[in-house]
Nucleic acid binder design. Structure first.
Lengths: 237, 237
DNA sequence: CAAGACACGTGAAGC
DNA sequence: TGCTTCACGTGTCTT
Protein backbone atom coordinates (compact mmCIF):
# COMPACT_ATOMS: atom_id res chain seq x y z
CA UNK A 1 0.00 0.00 0.00
CA UNK A 2 2.55 2.60 1.12
CA UNK A 3 5.47 3.44 -1.15
CA UNK A 4 7.85 3.38 1.89
CA UNK A 5 10.88 5.49 1.04
CA UNK A 6 9.92 6.43 -2.51
CA UNK A 7 12.08 9.46 -3.18
CA UNK A 8 12.83 11.04 0.16
CA UNK A 9 16.46 9.94 0.13
CA UNK A 10 17.05 13.21 -1.64
CA UNK A 11 15.85 15.19 1.36
CA UNK A 12 17.26 12.82 3.97
CA UNK A 13 20.80 13.10 2.69
CA UNK A 14 20.30 16.84 2.95
CA UNK A 15 19.12 16.97 6.55
CA UNK A 16 21.13 14.15 7.95
CA UNK A 17 24.20 14.49 5.71
CA UNK A 18 26.41 17.40 4.63
CA UNK A 19 24.07 20.31 5.03
CA UNK A 20 23.07 21.37 8.52
CA UNK A 21 19.41 21.96 9.04
CA UNK A 22 18.48 25.55 9.79
CA UNK A 23 17.21 24.90 13.31
CA UNK A 24 18.86 21.73 14.60
CA UNK A 25 22.36 23.11 14.36
CA UNK A 26 22.50 24.26 18.00
CA UNK A 27 21.17 21.03 19.49
CA UNK A 28 23.08 18.15 17.94
CA UNK A 29 26.50 19.71 17.52
CA UNK A 30 27.12 20.91 21.05
CA UNK A 31 29.48 18.30 22.50
CA UNK A 32 31.50 17.31 19.50
CA UNK A 33 32.59 18.83 16.18
CA UNK A 34 33.63 15.56 14.59
CA UNK A 35 30.98 14.85 11.97
CA UNK A 36 30.87 11.12 12.50
CA UNK A 37 31.42 10.81 16.25
CA UNK A 38 29.53 8.19 18.26
CA UNK A 39 27.18 10.55 20.11
CA UNK A 40 26.20 12.13 16.84
CA UNK A 41 25.31 8.85 15.17
CA UNK A 42 23.04 8.07 18.15
CA UNK A 43 21.32 11.43 18.21
CA UNK A 44 21.20 11.27 14.44
CA UNK A 45 19.28 8.04 14.63
CA UNK A 46 16.89 9.54 17.10
CA UNK A 47 16.36 12.64 15.02
CA UNK A 48 15.92 10.52 11.92
CA UNK A 49 13.30 8.38 13.62
CA UNK A 50 11.54 11.52 14.82
CA UNK A 51 11.46 12.91 11.33
CA UNK A 52 10.14 9.66 9.98
CA UNK A 53 7.34 9.77 12.54
CA UNK A 54 6.65 13.33 11.65
CA UNK A 55 6.53 12.55 7.98
CA UNK A 56 4.13 9.67 8.43
CA UNK A 57 1.90 11.65 10.79
CA UNK A 58 1.66 14.39 8.24
CA UNK A 59 0.79 11.86 5.59
CA UNK A 60 -2.00 10.48 7.78
CA UNK A 61 -3.29 13.98 8.36
CA UNK A 62 -3.42 14.62 4.63
CA UNK A 63 -5.23 11.35 4.07
CA UNK A 64 -7.80 12.23 6.73
CA UNK A 65 -8.54 15.60 5.18
CA UNK A 66 -8.73 14.20 1.67
CA UNK A 67 -11.03 11.41 2.78
CA UNK A 68 -13.49 13.96 4.12
CA UNK A 69 -13.18 15.94 0.94
CA UNK A 70 -14.04 12.82 -1.04
CA UNK A 71 -17.06 12.23 1.16
CA UNK A 72 -18.20 15.74 0.36
CA UNK A 73 -17.65 15.06 -3.32
CA UNK A 74 -20.02 12.11 -3.07
CA UNK A 75 -22.57 14.04 -1.02
CA UNK A 76 -22.68 16.79 -3.62
CA UNK A 77 -22.62 14.10 -6.31
CA UNK A 78 -19.93 15.99 -8.16
CA UNK A 79 -17.10 14.62 -10.24
CA UNK A 80 -14.03 13.32 -8.45
CA UNK A 81 -11.94 15.57 -10.67
CA UNK A 82 -13.37 18.81 -9.33
CA UNK A 83 -10.91 21.15 -7.68
CA UNK A 84 -10.49 21.18 -3.96
CA UNK A 85 -11.20 24.90 -3.99
CA UNK A 86 -14.26 24.76 -6.22
CA UNK A 87 -15.53 21.75 -4.35
CA UNK A 88 -15.34 23.68 -1.09
CA UNK A 89 -17.03 26.65 -2.76
CA UNK A 90 -19.87 24.36 -3.81
CA UNK A 91 -20.07 22.96 -0.31
CA UNK A 92 -20.35 26.46 1.13
CA UNK A 93 -23.15 27.27 -1.29
CA UNK A 94 -24.94 24.00 -0.63
CA UNK A 95 -24.86 24.43 3.13
CA UNK A 96 -26.24 27.94 2.74
CA UNK A 97 -29.00 26.68 0.46
CA UNK A 98 -30.00 23.82 2.71
CA UNK A 99 -30.01 26.05 5.77
CA UNK A 100 -32.21 28.58 3.99
CA UNK A 101 -34.51 25.87 2.69
CA UNK A 102 -35.12 24.18 6.01
CA UNK A 103 -35.67 27.59 7.55
CA UNK A 104 -38.24 28.53 4.92
CA UNK A 105 -40.15 25.30 5.16
CA UNK A 106 -39.90 25.29 8.91
CA UNK A 107 -41.28 28.77 9.29
CA UNK A 108 -44.33 27.86 7.27
CA UNK A 109 -45.16 24.51 8.74
CA UNK A 110 -43.56 24.00 12.13
CA UNK A 111 -44.13 25.63 15.51
CA UNK A 112 -42.45 29.00 15.84
CA UNK A 113 -39.90 29.55 18.57
CA UNK A 114 -41.91 32.39 20.10
CA UNK A 115 -45.46 32.19 21.36
CA UNK A 116 -47.90 33.52 18.79
CA UNK A 117 -51.66 33.74 18.49
CA UNK A 118 -53.69 34.51 15.40
CA UNK A 119 -57.45 34.48 15.08
CA UNK A 120 -59.08 35.22 11.75
CA UNK A 121 -62.70 35.66 10.86
CA UNK A 122 -62.90 33.79 7.61
CA UNK A 123 -66.46 34.74 6.73
CA UNK A 124 -65.40 36.99 3.87
CA UNK A 125 -63.51 34.32 1.93
CA UNK A 126 -66.33 31.86 1.44
CA UNK A 127 -69.63 31.73 3.27
CA UNK A 128 -71.03 28.34 2.48
CA UNK A 129 -71.95 27.77 6.10
CA UNK A 130 -74.75 30.31 6.33
CA UNK A 131 -75.92 29.74 9.87
CA UNK A 132 -72.46 29.91 11.41
CA UNK A 133 -69.43 32.09 11.72
CA UNK A 134 -66.16 30.37 10.89
CA UNK A 135 -62.93 31.29 12.62
CA UNK A 136 -59.45 30.19 11.80
CA UNK A 137 -57.34 29.95 14.93
CA UNK A 138 -53.61 29.30 14.94
CA UNK A 139 -51.07 29.57 17.71
CA UNK A 140 -47.64 28.29 18.68
CA UNK A 141 -46.62 27.64 22.26
CA UNK A 142 -44.63 25.37 24.53
CA UNK A 143 -46.08 21.89 24.55
CA UNK A 144 -47.52 20.36 27.72
CA UNK A 145 -49.55 17.24 28.51
CA UNK A 146 -52.97 18.80 28.92
CA UNK A 147 -52.67 21.43 26.24
CA UNK A 148 -55.13 19.76 23.89
CA UNK A 149 -57.62 18.96 26.63
CA UNK A 150 -57.54 22.54 27.93
CA UNK A 151 -57.96 23.83 24.43
CA UNK A 152 -61.00 21.70 23.80
CA UNK A 153 -62.53 22.75 27.11
CA UNK A 154 -61.92 26.36 26.29
CA UNK A 155 -63.64 26.05 22.95
CA UNK A 156 -66.50 24.15 24.49
CA UNK A 157 -67.01 26.81 27.13
CA UNK A 158 -67.20 29.34 24.32
CA UNK A 159 -69.80 27.14 22.62
CA UNK A 160 -67.66 26.75 19.57
CA UNK A 161 -67.45 23.63 17.48
CA UNK A 162 -64.16 22.37 16.13
CA UNK A 163 -64.47 21.61 12.45
CA UNK A 164 -60.82 21.00 11.75
CA UNK A 165 -57.63 20.73 13.74
CA UNK A 166 -54.06 20.49 12.52
CA UNK A 167 -51.75 19.89 15.48
CA UNK A 168 -48.00 19.73 15.09
CA UNK A 169 -45.79 19.02 18.08
CA UNK A 170 -42.05 18.78 17.73
CA UNK A 171 -39.07 19.56 19.91
CA UNK A 172 -41.23 20.54 22.87
CA UNK A 173 -43.07 23.16 20.84
CA UNK A 174 -46.61 22.92 19.59
CA UNK A 175 -48.24 24.55 16.59
CA UNK A 176 -52.03 24.38 16.41
CA UNK A 177 -54.26 25.37 13.56
CA UNK A 178 -57.99 25.10 14.18
CA UNK A 179 -61.07 25.90 12.24
CA UNK A 180 -63.96 26.50 14.61
CA UNK A 181 -67.59 27.28 13.97
CA UNK A 182 -69.76 29.48 16.19
CA UNK A 183 -73.52 29.84 16.10
CA UNK A 184 -74.64 33.21 14.83
CA UNK A 185 -77.26 33.33 17.56
CA UNK A 186 -74.67 33.41 20.32
CA UNK A 187 -71.70 35.00 18.52
CA UNK A 188 -70.93 37.97 16.37
CA UNK A 189 -67.81 39.13 14.60
CA UNK A 190 -66.59 40.61 17.88
CA UNK A 191 -66.13 37.06 19.25
CA UNK A 192 -62.66 37.15 17.74
CA UNK A 193 -61.73 39.01 20.91
CA UNK A 194 -63.20 36.30 23.14
CA UNK A 195 -61.22 33.68 21.34
CA UNK A 196 -58.01 35.63 21.48
CA UNK A 197 -58.32 36.29 25.20
CA UNK A 198 -59.18 32.69 25.94
CA UNK A 199 -56.15 31.50 24.03
CA UNK A 200 -53.99 34.11 25.73
CA UNK A 201 -54.92 32.76 29.16
CA UNK A 202 -54.35 29.27 27.83
CA UNK A 203 -50.81 30.16 26.85
CA UNK A 204 -50.20 31.94 30.13
CA UNK A 205 -51.30 28.84 31.98
CA UNK A 206 -48.86 26.93 29.81
CA UNK A 207 -45.88 29.16 30.59
CA UNK A 208 -46.72 28.96 34.29
CA UNK A 209 -46.51 25.18 34.36
CA UNK A 210 -43.18 25.13 32.56
CA UNK A 211 -41.69 28.41 33.81
CA UNK A 212 -37.97 27.69 33.69
CA UNK A 213 -35.89 25.26 31.71
CA UNK A 214 -36.09 27.30 28.54
CA UNK A 215 -34.38 30.60 29.30
CA UNK A 216 -34.98 33.52 26.97
CA UNK A 217 -36.05 31.84 23.78
CA UNK A 218 -35.13 34.85 21.68
CA UNK A 219 -31.33 34.58 21.38
CA UNK A 220 -29.15 33.12 18.65
CA UNK A 221 -31.69 31.57 16.33
CA UNK A 222 -29.12 29.87 14.11
CA UNK A 223 -29.22 26.35 15.50
CA UNK A 224 -32.88 26.00 16.34
CA UNK A 225 -33.22 22.93 14.19
CA UNK A 226 -30.54 20.89 15.92
CA UNK A 227 -32.70 19.06 18.42
CA UNK A 228 -35.64 18.52 16.14
CA UNK A 229 -36.41 14.90 15.51
CA UNK A 230 -39.36 12.75 14.49
CA UNK A 231 -42.08 15.27 14.07
CA UNK A 232 -45.46 14.48 15.57
CA UNK A 233 -48.18 15.63 13.25
CA UNK A 234 -51.87 15.00 13.76
CA UNK A 235 -54.73 16.12 11.58
CA UNK A 236 -58.22 15.73 12.98
CA UNK A 237 -61.61 16.21 11.46
CA UNK B 1 2.03 42.21 2.42
CA UNK B 2 4.13 39.45 0.91
CA UNK B 3 7.41 38.50 2.53
CA UNK B 4 9.07 38.42 -0.93
CA UNK B 5 12.01 36.00 -0.74
CA UNK B 6 11.69 35.14 2.94
CA UNK B 7 13.65 31.94 3.26
CA UNK B 8 13.55 30.21 -0.07
CA UNK B 9 17.22 30.95 -0.78
CA UNK B 10 17.85 27.70 0.94
CA UNK B 11 15.93 25.78 -1.67
CA UNK B 12 16.90 28.03 -4.56
CA UNK B 13 20.60 27.46 -4.04
CA UNK B 14 19.74 23.81 -4.09
CA UNK B 15 17.82 23.77 -7.35
CA UNK B 16 19.80 26.41 -9.20
CA UNK B 17 23.17 25.82 -7.55
CA UNK B 18 25.31 22.76 -6.86
CA UNK B 19 22.69 20.06 -6.73
CA UNK B 20 20.86 19.10 -9.88
CA UNK B 21 17.14 18.83 -9.57
CA UNK B 22 15.75 15.39 -10.12
CA UNK B 23 13.85 16.28 -13.28
CA UNK B 24 15.35 19.45 -14.75
CA UNK B 25 18.78 17.92 -15.19
CA UNK B 26 18.21 17.00 -18.82
CA UNK B 27 16.85 20.38 -19.88
CA UNK B 28 19.09 23.16 -18.55
CA UNK B 29 22.49 21.52 -18.60
CA UNK B 30 22.58 20.34 -22.18
CA UNK B 31 24.83 22.91 -23.86
CA UNK B 32 27.40 23.66 -21.20
CA UNK B 33 28.90 22.04 -18.14
CA UNK B 34 30.52 25.19 -16.72
CA UNK B 35 28.46 26.09 -13.67
CA UNK B 36 28.57 29.87 -14.16
CA UNK B 37 28.51 30.23 -17.93
CA UNK B 38 26.48 33.02 -19.59
CA UNK B 39 23.75 30.84 -21.04
CA UNK B 40 23.23 29.31 -17.67
CA UNK B 41 22.76 32.63 -15.88
CA UNK B 42 20.10 33.55 -18.42
CA UNK B 43 18.25 30.27 -18.18
CA UNK B 44 18.77 30.48 -14.45
CA UNK B 45 16.90 33.78 -14.35
CA UNK B 46 14.11 32.35 -16.41
CA UNK B 47 13.83 29.29 -14.26
CA UNK B 48 13.96 31.42 -11.14
CA UNK B 49 11.14 33.62 -12.40
CA UNK B 50 9.15 30.55 -13.26
CA UNK B 51 9.60 29.13 -9.81
CA UNK B 52 8.60 32.44 -8.26
CA UNK B 53 5.39 32.38 -10.29
CA UNK B 54 4.81 28.83 -9.29
CA UNK B 55 5.36 29.63 -5.65
CA UNK B 56 2.96 32.55 -5.70
CA UNK B 57 0.33 30.60 -7.58
CA UNK B 58 0.52 27.87 -5.02
CA UNK B 59 0.19 30.43 -2.26
CA UNK B 60 -2.94 31.86 -3.92
CA UNK B 61 -4.38 28.37 -4.22
CA UNK B 62 -3.82 27.75 -0.53
CA UNK B 63 -5.45 31.06 0.33
CA UNK B 64 -8.47 30.21 -1.80
CA UNK B 65 -8.95 26.86 -0.11
CA UNK B 66 -8.44 28.27 3.37
CA UNK B 67 -10.86 31.11 2.71
CA UNK B 68 -13.57 28.60 1.88
CA UNK B 69 -12.70 26.60 4.95
CA UNK B 70 -13.11 29.74 7.04
CA UNK B 71 -16.49 30.39 5.45
CA UNK B 72 -17.51 26.89 6.48
CA UNK B 73 -16.25 27.58 9.99
CA UNK B 74 -18.57 30.57 10.16
CA UNK B 75 -21.50 28.67 8.66
CA UNK B 76 -21.15 25.93 11.25
CA UNK B 77 -20.51 28.62 13.86
CA UNK B 78 -17.58 26.67 15.17
CA UNK B 79 -14.39 27.98 16.68
CA UNK B 80 -11.70 29.26 14.34
CA UNK B 81 -9.24 26.96 16.10
CA UNK B 82 -10.95 23.75 15.06
CA UNK B 83 -8.88 21.36 13.00
CA UNK B 84 -9.19 21.31 9.27
CA UNK B 85 -9.96 17.62 9.43
CA UNK B 86 -12.54 17.79 12.21
CA UNK B 87 -14.08 20.84 10.60
CA UNK B 88 -14.55 18.92 7.38
CA UNK B 89 -15.93 15.97 9.34
CA UNK B 90 -18.48 18.30 10.90
CA UNK B 91 -19.32 19.71 7.50
CA UNK B 92 -19.94 16.22 6.16
CA UNK B 93 -22.21 15.44 9.07
CA UNK B 94 -24.05 18.75 8.75
CA UNK B 95 -24.71 18.31 5.06
CA UNK B 96 -26.03 14.81 5.71
CA UNK B 97 -28.27 16.11 8.50
CA UNK B 98 -29.64 18.98 6.48
CA UNK B 99 -30.30 16.74 3.50
CA UNK B 100 -32.14 14.26 5.70
CA UNK B 101 -34.08 17.00 7.41
CA UNK B 102 -35.32 18.66 4.27
CA UNK B 103 -36.23 15.27 2.91
CA UNK B 104 -38.22 14.37 6.03
CA UNK B 105 -40.07 17.64 6.17
CA UNK B 106 -40.61 17.62 2.44
CA UNK B 107 -42.11 14.17 2.42
CA UNK B 108 -44.63 15.16 5.06
CA UNK B 109 -45.66 18.55 3.81
CA UNK B 110 -44.85 19.00 0.15
CA UNK B 111 -46.19 17.39 -3.01
CA UNK B 112 -44.66 14.01 -3.70
CA UNK B 113 -42.84 13.41 -6.94
CA UNK B 114 -45.21 10.64 -7.96
CA UNK B 115 -48.95 10.88 -8.36
CA UNK B 116 -50.74 9.59 -5.29
CA UNK B 117 -54.32 9.44 -4.10
CA UNK B 118 -55.57 8.69 -0.61
CA UNK B 119 -59.16 8.79 0.58
CA UNK B 120 -59.97 8.06 4.20
CA UNK B 121 -63.29 7.66 5.90
CA UNK B 122 -62.70 9.50 9.15
CA UNK B 123 -65.94 8.58 10.83
CA UNK B 124 -64.28 6.33 13.37
CA UNK B 125 -61.96 8.94 14.87
CA UNK B 126 -64.56 11.44 16.06
CA UNK B 127 -68.18 11.65 15.00
CA UNK B 128 -69.36 15.02 16.14
CA UNK B 129 -71.03 15.67 12.82
CA UNK B 130 -73.84 13.20 13.15
CA UNK B 131 -75.80 13.85 9.98
CA UNK B 132 -72.79 13.61 7.68
CA UNK B 133 -69.94 11.37 6.66
CA UNK B 134 -66.56 13.03 6.68
CA UNK B 135 -63.85 12.06 4.24
CA UNK B 136 -60.25 13.09 4.22
CA UNK B 137 -58.95 13.32 0.71
CA UNK B 138 -55.31 13.89 -0.18
CA UNK B 139 -53.49 13.59 -3.48
CA UNK B 140 -50.38 14.81 -5.23
CA UNK B 141 -50.21 15.47 -8.94
CA UNK B 142 -48.79 17.70 -11.64
CA UNK B 143 -50.13 21.21 -11.30
CA UNK B 144 -52.24 22.80 -14.04
CA UNK B 145 -54.32 25.96 -14.32
CA UNK B 146 -57.79 24.47 -13.94
CA UNK B 147 -56.91 21.82 -11.38
CA UNK B 148 -58.71 23.50 -8.53
CA UNK B 149 -61.76 24.38 -10.61
CA UNK B 150 -62.05 20.80 -11.90
CA UNK B 151 -61.66 19.49 -8.38
CA UNK B 152 -64.44 21.67 -7.05
CA UNK B 153 -66.71 20.67 -9.92
CA UNK B 154 -65.99 17.04 -9.27
CA UNK B 155 -66.87 17.36 -5.60
CA UNK B 156 -69.97 19.33 -6.45
CA UNK B 157 -71.14 16.68 -8.89
CA UNK B 158 -70.71 14.14 -6.11
CA UNK B 159 -72.81 16.38 -3.85
CA UNK B 160 -69.98 16.72 -1.37
CA UNK B 161 -69.24 19.83 0.59
CA UNK B 162 -65.69 21.03 1.13
CA UNK B 163 -65.14 21.77 4.79
CA UNK B 164 -61.44 22.32 4.62
CA UNK B 165 -58.79 22.55 1.93
CA UNK B 166 -55.03 22.72 2.27
CA UNK B 167 -53.48 23.28 -1.14
CA UNK B 168 -49.74 23.38 -1.66
CA UNK B 169 -48.29 24.06 -5.08
CA UNK B 170 -44.57 24.22 -5.62
CA UNK B 171 -42.19 23.38 -8.43
CA UNK B 172 -45.00 22.46 -10.81
CA UNK B 173 -46.34 19.86 -8.40
CA UNK B 174 -49.50 20.17 -6.36
CA UNK B 175 -50.42 18.56 -3.07
CA UNK B 176 -54.04 18.79 -2.00
CA UNK B 177 -55.55 17.83 1.30
CA UNK B 178 -59.31 18.18 1.58
CA UNK B 179 -61.89 17.42 4.18
CA UNK B 180 -65.24 16.88 2.57
CA UNK B 181 -68.64 16.17 4.05
CA UNK B 182 -71.29 14.00 2.40
CA UNK B 183 -74.93 13.71 3.35
CA UNK B 184 -75.77 10.35 4.85
CA UNK B 185 -78.96 10.29 2.80
CA UNK B 186 -77.06 10.17 -0.48
CA UNK B 187 -73.80 8.53 0.56
CA UNK B 188 -72.58 5.53 2.47
CA UNK B 189 -69.15 4.32 3.46
CA UNK B 190 -68.76 2.84 -0.01
CA UNK B 191 -68.59 6.36 -1.45
CA UNK B 192 -64.89 6.22 -0.80
CA UNK B 193 -64.74 4.35 -4.11
CA UNK B 194 -66.67 7.10 -5.91
CA UNK B 195 -64.26 9.69 -4.61
CA UNK B 196 -61.19 7.69 -5.53
CA UNK B 197 -62.40 7.04 -9.06
CA UNK B 198 -63.35 10.65 -9.57
CA UNK B 199 -59.92 11.78 -8.43
CA UNK B 200 -58.27 9.17 -10.59
CA UNK B 201 -59.98 10.53 -13.71
CA UNK B 202 -59.06 14.00 -12.57
CA UNK B 203 -55.38 13.06 -12.43
CA UNK B 204 -55.61 11.29 -15.78
CA UNK B 205 -57.05 14.42 -17.30
CA UNK B 206 -54.15 16.25 -15.77
CA UNK B 207 -51.47 14.00 -17.21
CA UNK B 208 -53.15 14.23 -20.63
CA UNK B 209 -52.88 18.02 -20.74
CA UNK B 210 -49.23 18.04 -19.75
CA UNK B 211 -48.06 14.76 -21.33
CA UNK B 212 -44.43 15.54 -22.11
CA UNK B 213 -41.91 17.93 -20.70
CA UNK B 214 -41.35 15.89 -17.57
CA UNK B 215 -39.84 12.62 -18.72
CA UNK B 216 -39.90 9.66 -16.34
CA UNK B 217 -40.30 11.26 -13.01
CA UNK B 218 -38.97 8.28 -11.10
CA UNK B 219 -35.19 8.35 -11.56
CA UNK B 220 -32.45 9.83 -9.38
CA UNK B 221 -34.36 11.30 -6.47
CA UNK B 222 -31.33 12.97 -4.92
CA UNK B 223 -31.67 16.49 -6.28
CA UNK B 224 -35.42 16.89 -6.30
CA UNK B 225 -35.23 19.95 -4.11
CA UNK B 226 -32.97 21.95 -6.37
CA UNK B 227 -35.58 23.82 -8.36
CA UNK B 228 -37.93 24.41 -5.49
CA UNK B 229 -38.50 28.05 -4.71
CA UNK B 230 -41.09 30.25 -3.06
CA UNK B 231 -43.67 27.75 -2.05
CA UNK B 232 -47.29 28.58 -2.72
CA UNK B 233 -49.40 27.48 0.16
CA UNK B 234 -53.11 28.16 0.55
CA UNK B 235 -55.39 27.09 3.35
CA UNK B 236 -59.12 27.56 2.82
CA UNK B 237 -62.06 27.17 5.09
C1' DC C 1 6.64 26.01 -22.32
C1' DA C 2 3.07 27.94 -19.34
C1' DA C 3 -0.60 27.52 -16.02
C1' DG C 4 -2.96 24.90 -12.80
C1' DA C 5 -3.66 21.32 -9.30
C1' DC C 6 -1.96 17.90 -6.14
C1' DA C 7 1.07 15.24 -2.75
C1' DC C 8 5.07 15.49 -0.47
C1' DG C 9 8.57 16.55 3.18
C1' DT C 10 9.89 20.07 6.04
C1' DG C 11 10.36 23.97 9.86
C1' DA C 12 7.77 26.33 13.17
C1' DA C 13 4.37 26.93 16.81
C1' DG C 14 0.89 25.28 20.30
C1' DC C 15 -0.36 21.94 23.75
C1' DT D 1 9.75 16.81 25.93
C1' DG D 2 6.99 14.50 22.13
C1' DC D 3 2.86 14.98 19.50
C1' DT D 4 -0.12 17.56 16.45
C1' DT D 5 -1.37 21.04 13.20
C1' DC D 6 -0.30 24.48 9.96
C1' DA D 7 2.00 27.07 5.98
C1' DC D 8 5.43 26.75 2.91
C1' DG D 9 8.23 25.63 -1.25
C1' DT D 10 8.95 22.08 -4.19
C1' DG D 11 8.56 18.16 -7.84
C1' DT D 12 5.39 16.18 -10.84
C1' DC D 13 1.60 15.39 -13.63
C1' DT D 14 -2.29 17.26 -16.44
C1' DT D 15 -4.52 20.68 -19.32
Amino acid sequence: MQPEIPDHMFYSFLTGGLCASSSTNSTTTTSSFYPFAIEDTVSQDKALAAQRNHKEAERRRRERINSHLNKLRKLLSCNSKTDKATLLAQVVQRVKELKQQTLEITDETLPSETDEISVLNSEDSSSYDDGRIIFKVSFSCEDRPDLFKDLMETLESLQMETIFADLTTVGGRSRNVLVVAADKEHHGVESVQFLQNALKSLLERSSKSVMMGHGGGGGGGGERLKRRRALDHIIMV
